[in-house]
Design a protein around this nucleic acid. Structure first.
Lengths: 346, 346
DNA sequence: ATGAAAGCGCTAACAG
DNA sequence: CTGTTAGCGCTTTCAT
């Protein structure tokens, strides 16, 4: 299986290299019998195109880059990546992840990759980019599509959930169950440029206000940015303590994601708070953890988001005009067992 | 940020393209002051190499392909991929996933990608390849490293856990807890070419035999291959029924992975079987689900496996001779709350 | 230490 | 419908 080149195929088939190129790429204007001959020769020689050579000559790389923060193995990222892969791989594109670990690697990415024709499009996951970087994006010659980016600014297209609107359903549920004091818990530690935290938190607050909660009945436990905690578990017991010890005595709490919600529920139970009898908890994501604890949560479909982003990139690469470049994938509340009517007043 | 080429940099720096090439790649024999000038020019012009052009000229693609089955978002695959990425990306390699959905796409992969210089190495996850395909691998001109492949045959290097040996610890635990009848549960549905099922199951059986269990005290519930089930849940209730209804009355059960184990435990509890009082359950993986149910399980580290595979690929690409091409990453038993002493005889 | 020149394997006009 | 001719942007001898 040593490297076979197109010219060897040409020789074997008794035609010119350009004919081989045309035949194998399925272009028109090739005599069916010639094509057959070429295909046979190619097959026999185990020929396949060198992507590099094709890229160089054609200007299209058939590769799209996916920019994501922190880790590819997380629930959201891995599923969104999969969605992108699904939509693009069937069209012959390679999908290449670029994991950004910190401000440095972000800078580095912006410094290098986009400049030269190394990808035909880039898809950006959940980043909260500063203006300078948005500017760089705009200057890119390839399409840039955002996935759950905080705004559409700087992107040729985006696919996202409406984090803000998504928080209305859980808050409404809590309200209808009679909870008079609410709380929102952010993930203890997050990547610096991940965006959903803030927005979701804001959505929670505005939903609560809209439903008539006074500000002293709306508590927020923000992300801890510094890494002072001895362990993850300490963070959760700290949160549980804040929840229980708060003067506002929240009985209904929304959590930024299921990962944190599950850990929190376990911690609450450990310290004697019954869920949902004493406190209702609602997560976000509906990931694989949620059903295990029968966690009430906000369902979102990152794979679908990925597919949507991939399809937009595809259309853009083809030069098509998108009918709806900035689209929203809906979320839905999943009712399970961690929510119940508010406990009777003390 | 329009495409800047090396020759523009050369012009700007007042040198030849070859000097730019040398300077920017950090080769020796470049006057420090010249290098500085080139670097400045490159930076100002936002220059970066075209990977395609470099590949074509040098013969090295700086890309490695990862072949994986089914989906990239699963716990094992996403973490193993991440490990590969970690080890390779810092050396400038792009890591490209190729997801294989069925026999067809496997054939297709083998037909095309390897032939021409599209990657510098390929890493294969968990595949059970037939001889024909192993033969193709052997003929590949690039290094091929396996990750959790059932055998080392056909690979230049592999990194794996010892599925067989890994099953000894849980079986020994069950034995020491006094369980007199055991069972092994495979994942209800799996990809056709995934390998761990069979091996793990075999390891379970031989461990049990070695510890003195008679064959009628060793039950195995194999994967259901056909898709007759109305839903996933039906599969689990079927398994629970088999476990409870079996004449051998197993009280200690090992499950192929945590995903299935967690679902099974929930189903058992639902039908009134107490865990661990009536039945002990041990999973495999120690994924994010395991701690939620306090599942006793066999811990494995796919990220580490991925890093190991990536590093081997790296060494091989450099032409180094590997001291230990076929290495084993250890697993360990994690004791939690789904295992206990066998119930008193009826 | 630097430059000139010859490709790497393919695509893309342009002829015919 | 098919062949010829130029490159794509870079690396790599080979000179100097």
């Amino acid at each position: 299986m040593a490297r076979t080149t197109i010219s060897e195929v040409a020789k074997a088939a008794g035609v010119s290299v350009s004919t081989v190129s045309r035949a194998l790429r399925g272009l028109d204007k090739v005599n069916p019998s010639t094509r057959k001959r070429v295909e046979d020769a190619a097959e026999k020689l185990h020929f396949s195109f060198s992507k590099s050579a094709s890229s160089l000559a054609s200007g299209k790389t058939m590769r799209v880059g996916v920019l994501l923060a922190d880790r590819i193995s997380g629930w959201f990222n891995s599923h969104a990546f999969e969605g992108v892969y699904e939509s693009l791989s069937v069209h012959g594109y390679d999908v290449i992840p670029y994991v950004i670990w910190g401000e440095d690697s972000l800078d580095n990415f912006f410094q290098t990759l986009p400049g030269n024709q190394n990808v035909d499009a880039v898809i950006v996951f959940s980043f909260d980019l500063d203006d300078a970087k948005k500017q760089v994006l705009k200057e890119l010659t390839v399409p840039v599509v955002g996935l759950n980016t905080p705004s559409d600014d700087g992107y040729d297209a985006t696919a996202r959930i409406d984090d803000d609107a998504a928080m209305y359903a859980p808050v409404r549920l809590l309200h209808s169950l009679g909870h008079e004091s609410l709380a929102y818990v952010e993930q203890p530690e997050t990547s610096p440029f991940l965006s959903s935290s803030r927005i979701r938190s804001q959505g929670f607050v505005s939903a609560a206000r809209e439903l008539g909660y006074a500000d002293d009945k709306i508590m927020t436990i923000p992300a801890i940015v510094y890494t002072g905690m001895r362990s993850q578990m300490d963070a959760y017991s700290g949160i549980a303590a804040q929840l229980v010890g708060s003067p506002s005595r929240p009985t209904g709490v929304c959590v930024e994601n299921d990962k944190v919600a599950v850990a929190l529920v376990r911690e609450l139970v450990r310290v004697g708070v019954r869920v949902p009898e004493d406190m209702s908890v609602i997560g976000f994501d509906d990931d694989s953890r949620a059903p295990i604890l029968d966690l009430t949560t906000v369902h979102q479909d990152p794979t679908e988001l990925g597919r949507a982003a991939g399809n937009k990139a595809l259309a853009l690469m083809r030069g098509e005009q998108l009918a709806d470049p900035y689209s929203v994938v809906p979320t839905s509340l999943v009712l399970r067992d961690t929510t119940g009517t508010a406990p009777a007043n003390e």
